[in-house]
Design a binder for these strands. Structure first.
Length: 549
DNA sequence: GTAGGGTTAG
């Protein structure tokens, strides 16, 4: 490459700047970069004159491209006598966006660089501040972010579109969405990023209707708007509307300016299908993916595994998983959870062994999957072992949902002493799910004595949650104490506690997702379901009679 | 330059 570089130094049609820039961009690794770096240093005076320019190109590649190295960039940076603004911006951006394990250190370094730059008499430009604000958003550094806003006002950048957009994003993600809205309303000029940042802000905090309201007011959304709405509605518990957005996208696809679904759309829509159990939609999206020529990457593969698994197609989920060329922790965790969900405890652990053999490190989600596998398959001893190795071997500190799973395993097995001891020794505060799991066990085994105590505790935590009263009623019923059932029901009535939101399930019939619950369900679906349930009940009764005989 | 994706119990 060096000889090529020497040969190219003279052509009149190619400037040094563009030649070196081209070569830097073509670098595949730090070692090639070092060769060019050396060449710049040993080249003619002409090159030396433009030293800052070449160094900033080198830094840009080394600090920000995937095949560079931040530590090499830092080494170069430390040897620069008087770094200029573009050089500082590259380094601040690199430190602020690097996915380091030690986030706080890097944020500190980004801010230290910023202070260093100011002390060298260099003022930031409109690029510097958004890098810092983005970093504060990722790290949820509220104090620092607010401080940077103060700086931006002082320096007169508070009307810069990029600064304003990054501040909207910062406030909506870290502090308050209403402060973000205030900034948004005060803006004289807004671009698509301003609108998207505000919509995403509302989606993030579950204010879906306000997000929707803003979306309907904006001129035209781009792919990020649509994808954000789909994901936001899935995560906000309204997956049916997420599918409707996708449908709207399809209907508008005739418009040349309409955003075309991309990989992110597919992943989000598959997640919506998984939440709804909408297998026909899911299959259609899978087909669409193949037809569209979009690459089925690891994220989509995982979403497909999850969708097929949650829609009841264990085999298809497994098949998709096997066909995935690369699998990360999330992909392995997804298939483990699918086996767990279907009650295949042993198979979930077989997959786990395979994952370990492949050298993929499990995370806390993997262990939720494994513990729930134990729970659904009644594997008490394996559950205890799993909980132990998670802490001891994998150094993963159990979170509150791991405790909830473990209590569930023990409670279902009627091991109340052990479950209570586990809760007593928890290093974190047990939440309603942990106590709820214990109450579930009491309900199952008719353990009135403990059930009363646990239910009372849960009622103290959430006095208006009807579920705990109902669980207590069921515990009494299981023990044959019907007077107590009546007493609790009367007490609920007296306090005005009722089941406000009816338990709701969804089923897809001929490609249409129907919601059904104890109040208001589509008649066709209910008729079919009642018919099926009657048949099943009669068959079960017949089998019991046969078994008794 | 600032905005978007998959896995977590009950």
């Amino acid at each position: 490459m060096l000889s090529f570089l020497r040969n190219m130094l003279e052509p009149p049609w190619l400037s040094f700047r563009s030649l070196i820039s081209y070569l830097i961009e073509e670098c595949k690794n730090t070692s090639q970069l070092k060769q060019i770096h050396a060449q710049i240093f040993t080249s003619s005076n002409l090159l030396q004159k433009d030293h800052h320019f070449f160094i900033s190109r080198l830094l840009f590649f080394s600090a920000l491209s995937g095949s560079g190295s931040l530590s090499y960039a830092t080494q170069i940076f430390r040897r620069i006598k008087n770094p200029n603004l573009p050089i500082y911006n590259i380094m601040i951006r690199a430190y602020a966006s690097k996915n380091s394990q030690n986030h706080d250190t890097h944020l500190c370094q980004a801010l230290m660089l910023y202070k260093h730059m100011l002390s060298n008499g260099i003022s930031p430009d409109s690029l510097t501040l958004p890098f810092l604000v983005k970093e504060c958003t990722t790290r949820r550094a509220i104090g620092t972010g607010t401080g940077i806003q103060g700086q931006s006002i002082k320096l007169g950048f508070n009307t810069d579109l990029f600064v304003q957009n990054s501040m909207i994003n910062f406030y909506s993600a870290c502090a308050s969405v209403s402060s973000a809205r205030k900034l948004f309303d005060e803006m004289l000029i807004r671009d698509i990023v301003s609108w998207n940042s505000m919509i995403i802000g509302y989606l993030r905090c579950g204010r879906l209707d306000e997000a929707l309201d803003l979306f309907r007011k904006m001129k035209r959304g781009n792919i990020i708007t649509w994808n954000s709405l789909i994901t936001g509605f899935v995560q906000g518990g309204r997956p049916k509307e997420a599918l409707e957005f996708f449908h709207e996208m399809q209907c508008l696809s005739g418009d040349i300016n309409m955003a075309k679904p991309d990989k992110i759309t597919i992943a989000s829509v598959l997640s919506a299908c998984a939440h709804l159990g909408a297998i026909d939609h899911g299959k259609w999206v899978h087909g669409y993916l193949s037809r569209s020529g979009l690459e089925c990457d690891m994220v989509i593969g995982t979403a497909l595994v999850d969708m097929y698994g949650k829609c009841g197609c264990l085999e298809r989920a497994h098949e998709v998983f096997r066909e995935m060329p690369k699998k990360d922790t999330l992909a392995w965790s997804a298939i483990i959870s699918v086996f767990a969900l279907h009650g295949y405890g042993k198979e979930a652990f077989d997959i786990f062994k395979e994952m370990e053999a492949e050298g993929v490190k499990p995370n806390h989600v993997t262990f939720v999957g494994l513990l729930s596998a134990c729970c659904h398959s009644g594997l008490v001893e394996i559950g205890r072992w799993c909980f132990d190795i998670m802490k001891r071997i994998y150094r993963i500190e159990p979170q509150v949902h791991h405790y909830a799973c473990m209590v569930d395993i023990l409670g279902r097995a009627g091991l109340f002493g052990e479950a209570e001891e586990l809760i007593r020794n928890m290093p974190i505060e047990p939440d309603v799910f942990v106590w709820g799991a214990l109450l579930g066990g009491c309900q199952m085994h008719g353990n009135v004595q403990l059930g009363e105590k646990v239910a009372q505790h849960l009622i103290d935590l959430e006095p208006l949650n009807h579920a705990f009263y109902m669980n207590l009623c069921d515990t009494y019923a299981k023990a044959g104490r019907y007077n107590d059932v009546q007493r609790i029901r009367a007490s609920m009535k007296e306090q005005g506690i009722k089941k406000e939101i009816p338990g709701c399930s969804m089923i897809e019939v001929n490609g249409i997702v129907h919601e059904f619950s104890t109040v208001g369900s589509p008649d066709v679906v209910m008729d079919e379901l009642v018919c099926l349930l009657t048949t099943l009940r009669n068959e079960m009764k017949a089998n019991i009679v046969l078994m008794k005989n």
